[in-house]
Design a binder for these strands. Sequence first.
RNA 1: GGUACCAUGGCCGAGUGGCUAGGCAGAGGUCUGCAAAACCUUACACAGCGGUUCGACUCCGCUUGGUACCUCCA
Length: 497
Amino acid sequence: MAELQFYNTLSRKKEIFEALNPPHVGLYVCGPTVSGESHLGHARPFITFDVIYRYLIHLGYKVRYVRNITDAGHFEEEGRKAEDKISQKALLERLEPMELVQKYSNLFHWAMQQFNCLPPSIEPTATGHIIEQISMIKKIMELGYAYEVDGSVYFDVRKYAEKYPYGILSGRKIDDLLETTRNLEGQDEKRNKADFALWKKTPPEHIMRWPSPWGEGFPGWHIECSAMSSKYLGKQFDIHGGGMDLQFPHHESEIAQSTIALGKMPARYWVHNNMITINGRKMGKSYNNVIKLSELFSGNHPLLEKAYSPMTVRFFILQTHYRSTLDFSNEALQAAEKGLNRLWSAYEILKMLPEPLHTTGENKGLNEQIERWCRECDDFMKDDFNTAKVLANLFELTPIINSLKSGQIKPNELSSNTFALLKKTWKEYLEDILGLKEEKSLQDDKLAGVMGLILNIRKDVRSKKDYATSDKIRQTLESVGITVKDEKDGNTSWSAN
RNA sequence: GGUACCAUGGCCGAGUGGCUAGGCAGAGGUCUGCAAAACCUUACACAGCGGUUCGACUCCGCUUGGUACCUCCA
């Protein structure tokens, strides 16, 4: 059996995964900043790591999955006025900071539920761990790797770089960082441009503030992840994940902080997902090209031709390898929607098919082919979580399932073992690992009752060969979004979209 | 400017030194009263130029184009 291996950003190659304390695995993923609503780009890491989490569980690991919520402020623009994003927006919206944080946290959780993402084991908040962050900063200061200037504390990157490889994760050279950073006007408290804040003093108008040994302020961006990951997963844990754009400076700084304060590289494996682009450009606030998740689901955005369901989006993301960029377009989303429908209806059919009675299938080649496609799924997942290839194999199996239903493949061609494997594979991969689920359409009971009546009437007129009327019924229903299908076996099915 | 990465058929996208990725759209066919669905068949490809090799889309170099990070960023 193949071993699980995946790409480690730290070593820049695929590595066989070895848990520090099997069967336990510690997984930390950088969560959302709840100062605004999540957009499509944010969905990618959470779906990617949801699948990784699910797959690790599938492999039998006991996973503690920690995903933080950043609800404390950061400085907007380094070297300039330090601003707390959250309190800034709160003033605009006339909300208490924590009210705002709650609002966007709720929205985030709603979106995660829509995507069928499993909740993390622990979801710590930055504001709930101010004490831990302060004590970590104190430790770093005691060890001489941080300095205070007028109520703010900075990490001394130059000093750190004398003994440790700053840039090890992002492939950056310390000299470049020290020299080529551009000049920003305004007073700079930092000794070197590459230094980053551990604690920032708050200006008087700031609402979000906490007392500290250095006066009132708020924690720097990077320290929360170091404090919370070590608290819940230990000084060193297995996997740290997040978007590629967090490699530098966020994760690089986390490594530096933890290395000093805890004496260890925080995580052994660093996993980064790539970006979602739109018209070839990264989706991001600065580019003004974001599509919020609520807009995506409702179709309410100028770039959207229609609404896309959460499962369509999830499927769309999983059809690409997580380390490749993924370009958004209506065409691509619609292709994903159709593909998912085809796959899902095959799955529905598979669940209904009767078990073959024979222990040995008559069509040996077919049995072997099916078993190979099924078993390969495991190899694909074990090779850097290749969900795209898993889906390709499920698509290969789709015509077989459909042919079993239509009778083009006879039930006795398959062995009961092959059939059982087929069912098990679809269930495990589609539902348990890829985390896809059925999406309820508008078919409530009343509609079903009405449709039953209509289709009954239509059946009568068809039996009298009154095709003009039967076609009129079908066409009218189609125009309101209900598709009627006359199946080969004489039954008529319908679906609403 | 520095550092990485990418370039695949109409679109989205896997992947590999010699063997069909897959999805969506297209074409032909089977089935059907018709349609839809389904099934079968099928066209379309690896940015350009060199090099390594028996053989490269896959390795190396250059060119061109693009993106990301260096500042908040998933």
